[in-house]
Design a protein around this nucleic acid. Structure first.
Lengths: 204, 204
DNA sequence: AGAATAAGAACGAACGTTCGTTTTTATTTG
DNA sequence: CAAATAAAAACGAACGTTCGTTCTTATTCT
């Protein structure tokens, strides 16, 4: 076994600490999670953690950077040359919602960071991710001839907002007493967005 | 001064504790806020708090119930009989975003609750508020002849989602390094929503 | 006077971190 | 290939501090 592919013991426990911390931060938030809880769940003694991380905060900042899923979401929003804008939106929306559903922890972590570290100079998830996401605006700039002249960044922003909120409401309202909201209304959301931005003649 | 309109000393300090706790919970979250901080900001000694509240959690549950602004947002989304759907949406969107901007604490508090009390049986903001908000679906049911046959609850959900996300992105992205996103794009959001849901002939 | 409220010391539990030490792993030497 | 050595990692007790809560005593109201 070569050195590069095999994880050393230290690397494995370090990863176990990150995994345990990630779970606990998602479940309880940062302040409510103790180093002893992290140690217990990682199968490690309390003191052992400090061989790998200097502080509790350093664990958090590493967790939010390692677990944010944008680098997985972004490639899903690629535009295929032959496709119409409609197909692009339909695929992108579906991919985005599915990926968010696959990683509900991400949203929780974003909120934990927002609640407990706003104002403090921590490595910020959104600040870090924003430059990565920005090129996606180009997808909307490229297709402006099919659209109704709304500024590309607004198109991008409303796209993300609409489908992020689609996922969030599904996430939040699923346990509600009145179960009014219908499943599979993603198509309706896509429908609204497309009619909202496409030039009249191109409406399907 | 009559008994009903004048606040007794006890009632005033009780309110001061709630105010202080509210501020601190918004700034730091629940777990990171200490009873001593609350006492200090309320201008009260630590022990004095316990003459008014039995536990720290009881303060939180009272805060989130007292400060959630739905009862103020909801009346703003009233439908005026003579208005077109377009006018209704335009006013409702503007009122909602403005009211959220007037009370950014509300969102912070919602996240605090979501992060630190999910799963625990606390008085839940959304659970409590949902029944109050539900009648608003009627606004969309009433206007279905003007619209494109999308289920009313989906209309409602996408409306709230789109304009909530408009506010949130403004809230989050305002300090971003690249200042790409243009101000005053609420009209564009309204435009997208209206084109998204109105029947073709009615599109302005 | 008497009830309500404020004050702040006191409590034990829990916090994040450090410590000296032991145990495990990796590297060097013979 | 072992034995010796160095380095890394694990341990759990202990540190000083802070936590939420309780208690006792003083003060303020009506």
């Amino acid at each position: 076994m070569t050195k590069t592919e095999a994880l050393t013991k230290g690397e494995r426990t370090r990863q176990a600490v990150l995994d345990a911390a990630h779970q606990l931060f998602v479940e309880q938030g940062f302040a409510a999670t103790s180093m002893r809880q992290i140690a217990d769940r990682a199968g490690l003694a309390l003191g052992g953690i400090y061989n790998h991380f200097p502080t509790k905060e350093s664990i958090f900042s590493e967790v939010i950077m390692a677990y944010h899923p944008f680098h997985q979401v972004i490639p899903l929003l690629k535009d295929t040359p032959g496709d119409t804008f409609e197909v692009f939106v339909r695929n992108a929306a579906k991919s985005m919602v599915a990926e968010l559903g696959r990683r509900p922890d991400f949203i929780k972590l974003m909120f934990v960071e927002l609640v407990e570290f706003e104002g403090k100079n921590m490595p910020n998830m959104l600040q870090t991710v924003f430059p990565q996401v920005l090129p996606l605006v180009q997808r909307f700039t490229d297709r402006q001839d099919e659209l109704r002249g709304i500024p590309p960044f607004t198109l991008f922003r409303s796209f993300l907002g609409l489908f992020f909120s689609y996922y969030m409401t599904e996430f939040l309202l699923v346990n509600m007493p009145a179960n009014l909201f219908q499943k599979d209304s993603l198509d309706d959301f896509v429908d609204i967005y497309l009619h909202g931005v496409l030039a009249p003649k191109d409406v399907i």
